[in-house]
C-alpha cells in the first residue's frame, strides 16, 4: 500500500513534467513571428533557471541569498571578455564564468558558514557583494567601465553564440533550466538534499545528527553560483553587450522573491512563480510604459508579503493542495497530507 502510493507519486510528476516540457519546446514556434515575445519567453525561462537554482541555497539550506546578480554579472563579464578579447567561444566562457562565480561565492560563504554566523549576515553580505562588484567593475576600466562593451556581431555563428533570432537562445536557456530542475530533483532525494533541508529547518539539531553544516552549505552555494555564472555567460550573448549594471540588486531581489513565493524546497515551485510573476512584470512594462517602471516591484513585494504571511510554503504547495483536493473530489481518494 505504502509502496503503491509512493510509486504513484513518483510517476505523476514526470507525466506532468513531460507534457510541460513538450509545451515549452513548441512555444517558440507559436511565437516565432514576434522577437519581443521570444525574448520575453527567454527571460521567463532565465528567471526560472535562477530561481530554481536559488532553491538549493535558499529553499533547501535556508540561506537567504541576494547575490544572484553578482554570479550572473561575473559569468557575463567572464564569458563576454573572453569572447571580445581573445575570441574564445562562450561554450568555454560559460563554465569559466561559473567557476569564477564559485570563487566569489566561497569568498563570502566560507567565513560566514565557518563561524555559524546568523543567516542574516549571509543575506547582507551577499547583497553587498552585488553592489561592490558593480562599483568595482565600473572603476575597472580595462574590463568594465561606464560604457557598454559590445560583443562582435555575427549573423549566425554557433561558435560565437551569436544569432539573428532569439530562438536558439531560448532553447539553450531551456537546456539550462532542465539541468537546474534535474539537479534540484536529484538532490531532493539524496543525502546532501536531506541534509540541506534539515539545516534549513534547524541547524543545531542537524549538526547533532552528524551534518557538517559548513561543508553542506558551501556545496549548495557552489552549485547555485555555478549555474548563476553559466546563465550570466549566456545573458551576455543574448543581449550582445556587457555592462556593470548586470550586477543588479533588483534582479537578485527578484530571484529571491521568486524562490520564496514559489515555495522553498519544492523543485517546481520557483519555476511556477517565475512563469507567473515575470510574465506579469513584462506585461505591465509593455502596457504601462516607462513611467510606471517600479509598479512591478511593488506588486512583487506585495505578493511576497502576502505569501509569507498566509502561505509560507509557497505557491508550489498551494498548487499541490489544490491538486490533491481535486484528486479527492474526482477519484474519491483521500487527500495527501
Amino acid at each position: 500500500m505504502q509502496n503503491l502510493q509512493t510509486m504513484k507519486q513518483k510517476r505523476s510528476i514526470p507525466y506532468t513534467a513531460i507534457v510541460l516540457f513538450i509545451i515549452a519546446l513548441v512555444l517558440p514556434i507559436l511565437f516565432r513571428r514576434s522577437q519581443y515575445n521570444l525574448i520575453l519567453l527567454t527571460t521567463v525561462v532565465m528567471y526560472g533557471v535562477l530561481a530554481t537554482s536559488w532553491n538549493i541555497i535558499g529553499g533547501m539550506a535556508g540561506q537567504f541569498d541576494l547575490a544572484a546578480g553578482a554570479y550572473l554579472g561575473l559569468g557575463a563579464f567572464t564569458s563576454g571578455t573572453l569572447l571580445i578579447r581573445w575570441d574564445i567561444t562562450p561554450w568555454l566562457g560559460m563554465p569559466a564564468g561559473g567557476l569564477i562565480a564559485i570563487g566569489f561565492a566561497v569568498l563570502i560563504g566560507y567565513p560566514l558558514f565557518r563561524f555559524r554566523v546568523r543567516e542574516v549576515w549571509y543575506a547582507l553580505s551577499s547583497a553587498a557583494l552585488v553592489s561592490v562588484l558593480r562599483v568595482a567593475f565600473l572603476m575597472w576600466e580595462e574590463v568594465g567601465g561606464p560604457t557598454e562593451r559590445y560583443i562582435p556581431y555575427h549573423d549566425w555563428s554557433f561558435y560565437h553564440l551569436r544569432f539573428s533570432s532569439y530562438i536558439p537562445f531560448y532553447y539553450i536557456m531551456l537546456i539550462l533550466l532542465v539541468i537546474a530542475l534535474f539537479i534540484n530533483h536529484w538532490l531532493s532525494r539524496r543525502k546532501l538534499g536531506y541534509y540541506l533541508l534539515a539545516l534549513g529547518d534547524n541547524e543545531d539539531a542537524a549538526e547533532i545528527l552528524g551534518v557538517n553544516a559548513q561543508a553542506c552549505k558551501l556545496k549548495a552555494l557552489m552549485i547555485y553560483a555555478f549555474i548563476g555564472g553559466m546563465v550570466g555567460g549566456l545573458y551576455a550573448c543574448l543581449y550582445g553587450f556587457i555592462h556593470p549594471k548586470f550586477f543588479s540588486n533588483t534582479m537578485s531581489l527578484e530571484v529571491a522573491i521568486l524562490g520564496i513565493v514559489g515555495g522553498m524546497g519544492i523543485t517546481y515551485g520557483p519555476l511556477l512563480a517565475a512563469a507567473i510573476l515575470v510574465s506579469m512584470r513584462e506585461f505591465l512594462r509593455a502596457s504601462l510604459g516607462g513611467q510606471m517602471q517600479s509598479l512591478y516591484l511593488g506588486i512583487y513585494s506585495f505578493v511576497l508579503i502576502i505569501i509569507v504571511l498566509f502561505k509560507p510554503q509557497g505557491l508550489g504547495a498551494l498548487l499541490r493542495d489544490i491538486y490533491s483536493r481535486l484528486n479527492y473530489i474526482f477519484r474519491k481518494e483521500s487527500p495527501k497530507p
Binding site: 543567516e119 522553498m264 509598479l295 506585495f302
Partner: peptide, 19 residues
C-alpha cells in the same frame, strides 16, 4: 517562523517601500 521567512518579510517590506 524560520529565519529565511523572517528575512523574507523585511526584504519584502524593503522592496515595497522602495517601489
Amino acid at each position: 517562523e524560520k529565519y529565511v521567512i523572517q528575512i523574507a518579510i523585511t526584504v519584502g517590506l524593503m522592496t515595497f517601500l522602495r517601489a
